[in-house]
Simulated assay, not measured.
Amino acid sequence: MISLNDDLIVGKGAHRTCYRHPEAHNLCIKVSHEGFSQEQDQELAYYKRLSNRNIQWQLLARYHGTVHTNIGTGYVFDLVIDANNYVNTKRL
């Protein structure tokens, strides 16, 4: 089980919170807020369709599967970071 805490939060939305993976600097873990797992299911279905089309993943964060966390099921994705391992949280 992976332990997540507020210090690892990269971003938080109305339906999910994204945490930096505590064991892999280039990955993040998305956890759906209670009652919003349907949105995550839709995103995973979309990723499956893209994977079946053999797209090139350079411009999309790749999905790496699920993990058990202390706050529920987590969905692991690539974390977009700069050369210094920082996440740019500024909006354009």
Rank of each mutant, 00 (worst) to 15 (best):
N70I: 04
D82F: 10
E43V: 15
L92T: 08
N52E: 15
A14F: 10
G65W: 02
Q58T: 13
N84E: 09
H68T: 13
H21P: 03
H21W: 03
N85F: 06
D41S: 04
H33C: 04
V10G: 11
N84K: 15
I81K: 06
S51F: 06
L44K: 07
G65S: 02
F36L: 01
A24S: 07
H21T: 05
L50F: 07
L60V: 14
Y63V: 11
N88S: 02
H25Y: 06
L50M: 15
S3F: 07
H25C: 09
G65L: 03
G13K: 01
Y19I: 00
F77S: 05
A24D: 05
N88W: 07
V67K: 12
R49D: 13
K48A: 06
T66V: 04
A83C: 12
H21F: 01
G35A: 00
L27T: 00
I71D: 10
I29M: 09
N85D: 15
K48E: 15
V80R: 12
L79W: 14
I2Y: 08
A83Y: 08
K30D: 10
H64M: 08
L44E: 14
Y46G: 13
I9V: 07
A83P: 10
M1L: 06
F77E: 02
D41V: 06
N88D: 15
F77L: 12
I2C: 04
S37H: 13
L27E: 00
T66S: 09
T69L: 03
D82Y: 06
K90F: 11
T73E: 15
K30C: 11
N85Y: 08
N84F: 03
R16I: 12
G13I: 12
V80M: 07
I2E: 12
V87W: 05
Q40G: 13
H15F: 01
N26F: 08
H33D: 03
K12F: 13
H15S: 01
T69Q: 13
T73V: 14
A83F: 13
Y47E: 06
E23N: 12
L8T: 04
D7A: 07
H25K: 12
G35I: 02
I9H: 01
K30E: 08
L4N: 06
Y63G: 15
H33A: 06
C28E: 07
S37P: 04
T73A: 14
T17N: 04
Q56N: 15
R91T: 05
R20C: 04
S51T: 03
D6L: 01
Y19F: 12
E23I: 01
L27K: 14
N54M: 10
G11R: 04
S51P: 00
K12M: 08
I71A: 07
D41T: 09
Q40C: 06
H64W: 08
D6R: 11
H15I: 02
V67F: 14
G13C: 10
L44T: 02
A24L: 03
N88L: 14
S51I: 01
H25P: 13
Q38P: 04
I9K: 02
H33T: 09
Y86Q: 10
R91W: 13
I29Y: 02
V80P: 09
R16W: 12
Y63I: 14
